[in-house]
Design a binder for these strands. Structure first.
Lengths: 196, 196
DNA sequence: CTGAACTATCTATCTACATAGGTAGTTGGT
DNA sequence: ACCAACTACCTATGTAGATAGATAGTTCAG
């Protein structure tokens, strides 16, 4: 269901085609909610049927059109309602921690590999989040720039602060993941020293 | 696919019925990988068909039986192979952070609620993980006690250390989640002070 | 000896998501 | 004029997982 609200969130900033939306899921919202285009197009159609968004045909080149979706009042309402409703937490499914719990079954070098990849993975993510966060804070990020145009200047700081806050959470979490994996590498060095 | 390996992990300690396994998913592995029994029973049947585990009928009461599954050599091999293979990271889907990024659309009190629930949620989890971690370290935890019986005493510390390490990761992550939510509450107090 | 709680399963339906394609028009550079 | 890269969709199939049941035997306490 969250995909729907991720789409509504995007559409509160500006009207988008399915393709545009899909691209956003490679950045911006994509950092907190991933979705492939094969999920996005049908969901947009469903949302239109339910009146949350409205599609309009716009010219695209000499002999083609594309569908641009805008959020409706009913969509805004639905989004607001979701924003004000309690979240439910998905049950834990964490392959990395599960694997770590059974490291006695892994080759120590594979275990080390696993932790190094964990570090690399989160280091990459943090690098990405940090760049995007910076671009949001100084409004060089195109998406946020468009969004802010809908608000009076005195609200901008607040809105930017929320986005930055979200990214801070992702970054902080990434950092503990890295720290955890580092401790794991230390543990492995202690209990199963690397051959040299 | 990870459900399969979670089940194999369980079965490396001792043979289990589907029901036993399902119960384990309410604790032990369940802390890192959740699954409902309606997923477990069919998966066990599939695994038996593929020769990873073996079911044997055991008497249960005067006129009934139950199926107890044991891991086979092929199952142990498959588990080892998985343990030595690189993990792939699931794309991010994080409703809490997504919501935080759009807090300008929420009523400030709802936003506060959301963050307070976030804190409560992880506080509960941490409390649980801490208890289990302690029980593993001092071997009062039944599951780990059974598992350790299969190993010589000098390996016990290592095995326990891995489990403790996994729980440490969960706890550390829970703690940053709480810290993050606290900062969010501070931010809300700054940008949209509570009415009194 | 009865009822409640627990054990041991199984099913059926639904949605979300992953994966992997396909078609057809557009834009921009050489 | 052509080709590559991009835009704008759409489909189909498969699996994972959520949800909500049903059935039937067992154990144990009052």
């Amino acid at each position: 269901m969250s995909l729907r609200y991720a789409l509504l969130a995007l559409l509160t900033a500006e009207p988008l085609t399915g393709y545009d939306a899909a691209k956003r899921f490679g950045g911006s919202v994509g950092h907190v909610w991933h979705a492939p285009d094969s999920q996005i197009y049908p969901e947009l159609r469903r949302m239109e049927k339910e009146g949350l968004i409205e599609g309009e045909q716009v010219r695209w080149g000499p002999k083609s059109t594309k569908t641009r979706y805008s959020i409706t009042d009913s969509g805004v309402l639905a989004f607001r309602e979701w924003m004000d409703s309690p979240l439910d937490y998905a049950p834990v499914r964490d392959a990395a921690h599960m694997r770590a719990a059974y490291f006695e079954w892994a080759d120590p070098d594979s275990a080390r590999d696993c932790l190094r990849r964990h570090i690399d993975h989160y280091a990459d993510q943090i690098a990405c989040w940090t760049v995007v966060r910076a671009a949001i804070v100084d409004a060089t990020n195109a998406t946020i720039a468009v969004r802010l145009r809908k608000y009076p200047a005195e609200e901008h700081e607040r809105i930017v602060a929320f986005k930055a806050f979200a990214y801070d959470g992702l970054i902080a979490r990434g950092e503990v993941e890295i720290e955890w994996a580092r401790k794991g590498l230390e543990l492995l060095d202690k209990v199963s020293p690397e051959k040299y």
